[in-house]
Design a protein around this nucleic acid. Structure first.
Lengths: 233, 233
DNA sequence: TTTGATAATTAGGCTAGCCTAATGCCCTGT
DNA sequence: ACAGGGCATTAGGCTAGCCTAATTATCAAA
């Protein structure tokens, strides 16, 4: 009889903190490369030594790969866990918006707390009730239950060529006030925009909406508006 | 100018643990009297010294009244907090059952984790979506947002007089398997029962349902079936 | 009234996560 | 080639919550 495949340790459930660290690392490495100690510290609002400590523990449990003085990356196992958290977060955001009348500025904070408390079963029931949504209210792709996530090249409105037509796909922000403002301006995922001007030196971009009205968007905000080129008329 | 009414301290949010202790004390003192250290320890599955320690902290923060070697009771402030948790728990149970297809045996565990993570706003939205329910799926009364809870004298089926007619009001249990069994037997809140027999020495009670079929219920279970006398006829 | 059982508390320790202060590594600019 | 600056890490401490072992209080029964 050949050796049985070693089943992965009955790993203890991850703590809330660990879940947060994994999510941070995921986001910080989504463009490739390493996540640095100070970036993680800033994102989680903790002191850098706290991050060093946690990184040590996480690499001991095999969730991340730590190259001292360089930074960290997720192992496949860590990536799986991170994607699960992101799925939870985005399903929660979708559910709160569609079923409980939250608006897209308020969902983030609520989902942030709930994602650590919900069971897999609950998430799947919510996903089911929503018809297995593929994008959350901000347009971000929702990982599948099996841990696949759509990766699309998007460009920010701040980079879109003047004269081009784009479709706003995703609003990469979580600040309630900014999101509310954007919603008031009609800048929500799905909207078609024509880039008609951009001022130099990181100046504002002007875009025309489908109804002919225009919006002037400062660079800071424009960077958050992720678009894809509009296809055909 | 007279002294302003001292507004209550900007008290830090309660921890998960503290919330659990308060709920325990509430349940253990619901018939009046004190909650003892060992009862709390047993209910929360922690060692008695852990309870002593927590009781000390909670009485310092004014949530409970601790009489050393006697036990504890909730202060008005502690009671308010406990009722808030119970409201959360029961609204969550109701929501999960009505809106997400959970059955009454599974809701407790899920609600137990969620109750520490949900915001007041979310609970009120759920309550609203449900039409401000007054009872949870087990028939337990849901405290109002302002902290009032209905108190009704109920007797268990094990105490109901043989020959009497009762209505099952509440199933005071949280074990999935037992609850599922009871549901299969049709023993759910609202059901009308005629007590037709009880064996001596804590023996089983026999009851007839509306459809004429009978159920034989051992004392352990009968104690969990809380009833009120049936009015009418 | 003393004794013993039982329950509560104190003593002392551990882990997870956080902190600040001190130290060490790495790289770039002179 | 090396001096600094900047970032990462180590050292050392703190709190919340839990634990076990030791001690002390209470109460009932002899």
């Amino acid at each position: 009889m050949s050796a049985a495949i070693r089943s992965p340790q009955p790993s203890p459930p991850l703590t809330r903190s660990v879940e947060d660290y994994l999510k941070s690392v995921f986001h910080l490495t989504s463009q490739g490369g390493f996540a640095t100690t100070s970036d993680i510290a800033e994102m989680l609002e903790v002191a850098p030594p706290s991050v060093s400590g946690m990184m040590k523990r996480l690499s001991e449990t095999g969730l991340i790969e730590h190259v001292p003085y360089r930074g960290v990356q997720l192992t496949p196992q860590g990536r799986r866990a991170a994607l699960q958290m992101i799925r939870r977060h985005r399903i929660l955001e979708s559910y709160l918006t569609s079923k409980l009348g939250y608006d897209w500025g308020d969902v983030h904070v609520e989902a942030e707390r709930l994602e650590h408390a919900v069971s897999e079963k609950l998430i799947e029931r919510m996903a089911d009730a929503l018809g297995e949504p593929r994008y959350d209210p901000h347009g971000a792709p929702i990982p599948t239950a099996t841990g696949e996530i759509e990766e699309t090249e998007l460009i920010s409105l701040a980079e879109a060529e003047v004269g081009s037509e784009v479709v706003l796909r995703e609003v990469s922000d979580e600040h309630p006030a900014r999101l509310q403002y954007l919603a008031e301006q009609g800048l929500k995922p799905g909207v078609r925009l024509t880039v008609i001007d951009r001022q130099p030196f990181n100046g504002p971009t002007t875009a025309r909406l489908g109804d002919g009205t225009t919006r002037v968007v400062g660079q800071e905000l424009a960077l958050l508006l992720l678009c894809r080129p509009a296809d055909g008329e």
